[in-house]
């Protein structure tokens, strides 16, 4: 009976028996699954950072102590207003911020709830400052100048910039992405190592057949191509299976991440369906192209690792 290889050509070396279609696709599928998670983590961290940093960099939080007290009159006859209103007016006329808004008592109570308890009562054990939320026109605006101006109308006013912690967020995101990238490299190396071990086992098992074909005048490239075709077939299958298996996990992780994203058009993503759509919004490229990417990547790893291994092994023959 004539044995045909994966391309329909004769399986000259008998690789179907030597390189099993069980172990290699299974291990590569596991690697592909892990790679999909790592790559998606990388994308998701990047996406969330973009969502978060877009607003955070320009966000200003102005805390005005004793907000209801009247401002110190600097000129006789000037109308008296509260310190917080004066601070808001100064911000609006400074040209350095937009969207200045005083947080309501309810919003303040909600904000301090984790530290001071229920927001239902109006009484707190300590006096709360008034809070103004605004966005700076430019993230590079000097906070110091604004603080000085505000202190003139409402002494001891604090200005906190989102820039301060956005830098930390960027560092955190970058370290997460670096970890994901490192995992990706590690997974690729493990997959390549598994291919090398499998191919070496195949070479050992089919040594006699290879020597015969070599003796008949087969080029090293011919022999390596047959191994590589078989390895590509098996690793591509593994890559595809792993990527497909990772899809449910990716959707689940995406839905978790969607809770942190409000720019997807699904604020807070409360419902299950909303979370699903939000997760698709966070992971579009990986979600749609994942199976294709991992199939091709696994096939390329299989091909390259096999070529190097077989050519190296054949050098031992005369």
């Amino acid at each position: 009976m004539v044995k045909r290889g994966v391309s329909g050509r004769v399986d000259r070396i008998g690789l179907r028996g030597a390189m099993s279609d069980r172990l290699l696709p299974f291990v590569v599928a596991a690697m592909s699954f892990l790679a999909a998670l790592a790559l998606t983590g990388n994308f998701a961290a990047g996406q969330l950072a973009v969502h978060w940093l877009g607003g955070a960099r320009k966000l200003l939080i102005i805390e005005v102590p004793d907000p209801g007290a009247p401002v110190v009159e600097t000129q006789p006859g000037t109308q008296k207003i509260s310190r917080i209103a004066a601070a808001k007016r100064l911000l609006e006329t400074s040209g350095k911020v937009i969207d200045a808004r005083i947080l309501s008592d309810a919003e303040l109570a909600h904000m301090v709830k984790p530290w001071l308890g229920s927001d239902e009562g109006a009484t707190f054990p300590i006096a709360l400052p008034g809070v103004i939320v605004a966005h700076s026109v430019s993230p590079t605006s000097t906070i110091a100048a604004l603080t000085k101006q505000l202190s003139a109308v409402a002494p001891k006013t604090l200005v906190e910039s989102g820039q301060r912690w956005s830098g930390r967020l960027v560092a955190l995101t970058n370290s997460l992405r670096a970890c994901a990238f490192a995992v990706l490299i590690l997974v690729a190396l493990v997959a390549a190592s598994v291919v090398v071990v499998t191919v070496r086992a195949g070479l050992a098992q089919r040594r006699e057949a290879i020597e015969i074909i070599h003796g008949l005048g087969a080029q090293d490239a011919d022999i390596a191509r047959q191994f590589a075709a078989r390895a590509m077939h098996l690793t591509a299958l593994g890559g595809l299976y792993g990527a497909l298996a990772s899809l449910p996990a990716l959707i689940w992780l995406g839905s978790l991440a969607a809770g942190f994203s409000e720019s997807s058009g699904f604020p807070h993503a409360d419902g299950a369906l909303s979370r699903l759509w939000a997760s698709l919004d966070i992971l579009p490229a990986v979600f749609l192209a994942g199976p294709l990417i991992f199939t091709v990547a696994a096939a390329l790893i299989g091909w390259a690792a096999t070529q190097v291994t077989v050519h190296g092994w054949l050098r031992r023959l005369s």
């Binding site: 009976m1 004539v2 044995k3 004769v10 399986d11 000259r12 008998g14 028996g17 006699e208 057949a209 015969i212 074909i213 070599h214 003796g215 008949l216 005048g217 087969a218 080029q219 090293d220």
Partner: peptide, 24 residues
């Protein structure tokens, strides 16, 4: 390898590929 193709060999132990037919 090209030179080997110009040399035919009948081995003492035949050295046939066991997974292939006589034709192949």
């Amino acid at each position: 390898a090209l030179l080997r193709r110009r040399i035919g060999v009948v081995y003492q132990d035949f050295r046939l590929l066991r997974h292939l037919s006589a034709y192949d």
